[in-house]
Computed example of a mutant assay.
Amino acid sequence: MTTELPPFFSAESIAACESAHAHGAGVEMTSGAATDLFTDPGNGHAEASAAVLTRAVNGPSFQFSARVQPGLRSTFDAGALLVRTDDSHWAKLCLEQAVDGAPTAVSVVTRHLSDDANGWSLPGADAWMRISRDGETFAFHVSTDGAVWKLLRIFSLPAHGSVEIGVVAQSPMGEGCSVEFTELTLHPHALSDPRSGA
């Protein structure tokens, strides 16, 4: 007997987001053209036009993960996981099309201004991504099989109590990007060793 998993995001929040559609227990997000979530470190311009769907999570520790499958067509098209403490403090873990055309693990940490860093190229536009929290310390991990995780970044955000977690679809230089987010999970405990990814 198969038990259907409940949706990760509420039906109300999905219905309220024009860019989101339920996909079994997961969700499909579609961004519009020229959309991004980024605060330019050069001029301070904040762009918040990307398709974003979030939910609140309480507690000082968690692990939030999903399989991310973006339809990459243009430079900087991406599907991402998001953690946000307020409008000026947030971070996203992206599967993004880099300037050279390769699907790439990318991290953006924003403390008023965005700190954008490319990680490594991935074999395709399909990866498991995870955000973990332990107090005000966060870690980004990426996996190509959902079992073995590799650390991309450890950083801090001012996080007192509840934070938002969610998913993002963006297409800063393109005509739009559709992203499937499946295998969405939330575990209410910290990693024993963020650097090992275990």
Rank of each mutant, 00 (worst) to 15 (best):
G161C: 06
A16I: 06
P7G: 04
A50F: 00
D77I: 02
D145Y: 02
L93W: 05
G26P: 01
G79Y: 03
D126N: 14
F138Y: 09
G32P: 01
S88I: 07
T185M: 04
C17N: 13
L186D: 12
P41D: 13
D193V: 04
F38N: 14
V179S: 12
T110G: 13
D87E: 15
S171V: 01
G174A: 11
L113E: 12
D126E: 15
S65N: 03
S192L: 14
S132D: 11
S13H: 02
V148W: 03
G71H: 12
L157C: 13
W149S: 09
A20W: 01
G174P: 04
H141L: 11
E183F: 00
H45W: 05
L37F: 12
P158H: 04
E183V: 01
L191P: 02
L152F: 00
G26K: 02
G26E: 06
H23L: 12
A80D: 10
A159M: 10
A33Q: 04
S121D: 13
S61P: 00
S196I: 07
V83C: 13
S31C: 08
G101F: 05
S65F: 01
V83N: 08
A127G: 06
T54R: 07
E180Y: 00
V179H: 05
H160A: 11
A98E: 15
G79N: 11
F38M: 15
V99W: 07
R55V: 07
H21M: 15
E4T: 09
E136R: 10
G44W: 01
G71Y: 02
T110K: 11
G124K: 14
S192C: 10
